[in-house]
Design a protein around this nucleic acid. Structure first.
Lengths: 341, 341
DNA sequence: TTGTATGCGTTATCAC
DNA sequence: GTGATAACGCATACAA
């Protein structure tokens, strides 16, 4: 069971009585090598079980053909859609993709970023963790001219291409829809305000209220981390207050679900008594009862776009003179949690 | 905006008028270097913005401290639980984790395996794709003594540690539960029979039927790829036949959901008319109406176990004389889709 | 405890 | 078209 030594281009060169450089060139389909020798070399490589040592090549060329991706949680439908989009483009362009999850903590995000940097990924695509407030681990990349593309949860302080969904429009459309359903006291369960996306969703909500001549009520606006538990706590707080809402716009589907479950337990009718709209279009939102109205983000498309921009930047080797922020449209999906038929 | 050159250990050595090897040793906390010089070197490294070139080190040491993980789909709760388990252990042990998804196709799986191999991952943890029937891309690893651990969807033909859930027991418990609810004509929507896990789930089902003196009915056993669409088609086929079932055991939660939705549309009562049990405990199964009875697999624990075995094998550098197959317990969770109260 | 020398496998530069 | 040679940055065997 001894470790058989790796076949290298030198072994092939020796066997064929040619030089290693010719082997290298042939294997890389360098057109300068004649078709005949190229075939001969490839055949020999095949027979000898040659496997290129990519690590050595990466070391030599200073390129790894690898893109790093950091998402808060792999297991969110939106994020895994983005990942699929990134993979599709990267795959076509000959890049491998390394995926990591920050678990929404700054500590893990920073550690991952350093690891990816040390492993010399050619570029990085990421959506920052909820807890991230310092950006040294990302400045590392910009300082060394390693292309960086943000999506969804972006950072103003760093110059880079940014792909975002139209969170403002989503919040606006969701709220406007509730208003059109005749709701007057519309609460909001929002996310951490250090993240732009949650600021924008809330801004859209406020804008819709204002347009409709409805007074925003501070006591109806809550902020938390948007987990199942946070959602339950938030809806309880809303319902225990003096002046209960007749609708709730939730900044994600998870808290929308919490709200629905809590209200059902209390015998309160959704949507008749209280209408609910979520955000993100998680798969479960379609299949729960009542199905959850929500705002759909084009995750797959965002991933593709992010990868295209990143790879372009990698290949041109120059930092672009100006960075784009691309806003992709969101779509309100009206389901039973907000529609009084 | 020019690319500043990387600081190397030689730069530090020159600045400190010492040798590069001392710098290398100090930075790696080699105890042979005196505390004083170690501190001095680390301080200089810090000040000079030194970042180790991990690619170069990997190349030199032939180790990457990276574990490759291939799963069919990142976005399945079970798989992402496994990934979390793997990450937790790997993180503690100083390994990075590269995650890829095969999208359940052989082609992508094979391509990923080759990429990971070429990138010299120290070990591989994987659950094979539904379509995978040839194993050359995995034999690559065993041939070069690169440790390999399978989980969930394992391969008999390859010697390696294997972590599986008790699929047989899960199928058995699920079916027995349906029998205890008084069901007599229990159908099964099963998965591809080239995968052991689906064979075992079905074997458990058959065993429970047999024990109860119920005749297995071939017309009540269907096989497909267990997607939403497959599930809908399967339940339709079952309901269109002469002799309709009074319960269905589905090999995953996705098809269980399809069945429930289809039956509800047809005005058939779940569980009164037809009881349903799924498999895997996807998050949605708890929150749909009716909530779906299912079999829970200990994904997180399986991931941890797989990582522990893999890392042990990596560190001892020797192929173990005998490989273990570890079966982790499954748990039946009884919910409303099968419980007539 | 530190320094010197060497080589990992590949690609790139230059020569022929 | 092909070959010889150097170099990438680091870790290590050996020498001091």
């Amino acid at each position: 069971m001894s470790n058989q030594p790796e076949t290298t281009i030198h072994d092939i060169a020796r066997a064929l009585k040619i030089s290693a450089s010719t082997v290298s060139r042939a294997l890389n389909d360098n057109p300068i090598i004649s078709q005949a020798t190229r075939n001969k070399i490839k055949k020999a490589a095949e027979e000898m079980g040659y496997r290129p040592n990519v690590v050595a090549a990466n070391f030599r060329t200073k390129r790894t053909n690898t893109i790093g991706v950091i998402v808060p949680l792999i297991n969110r439908h939106f994020f895994s859609s983005v990942i699929s989009g990134i993979e599709e483009i990267a795959y076509e362009a000959g890049f491998a993709v390394t995926i990591s999850q920050s678990k929404d903590t700054f500590e893990k995000e920073s550690k991952i970023a350093h690891t990816l940097f040390s492993n010399r990924v050619d570029g990085l695509i990421l959506s920052i963790a909820m807890g991230t407030q310092s950006y040294d681990h990302l400045k590392l990349f910009s300082k060394r001219q390693i292309p960086l593309v943000f999506f969804d949860r972006v950072v103003d302080e760093i110059d880079a291409h940014k792909i975002v969904a139209d969170d403002f429009g989503g919040g606006y459309k969701a709220t406007r829809h509730l208003i059109e359903q005749g709701r007057k006291r519309i609460a909001m369960i929002g996310g951490p305000q250090n993240l732009k996306i949650y600021q924008y969703r809330q801004a859209g909500y406020l804008k819709a209220l204002e347009e409709a001549g409805l007074q925003a009520d501070e006591s109806l606006i809550l902020h938390n981390s948007l987990t199942r538990e946070d959602g339950t706590q938030a809806i309880r707080k809303l319902m225990d207050a003096a002046n209960i809402p007749d609708a709730v716009f939730c900044a994600n589907d998870t808290t929308a679900l919490s709200a629905i479950i809590y209200l059902q337990e209390k015998g309160i009718n959704v949507p008749q008594d209280i209408a609910i709209v979520g955000f993100s279009n998680e798969p479960f939102s379609e299949v729960v009862t009542p199905s959850i109205s929500t705002v759909k983000q084009p995750g797959f498309e965002m991933g593709k776009k992010a990868a295209v921009l990143l790879i372009r930047q990698i290949n041109q080797k120059e930092a672009p003179e100006n960075f784009e922020t691309i806003t992709m449209p969101t779509e309100l999906i009206i389901r039973n949690s907000s529609r009084v038929i």
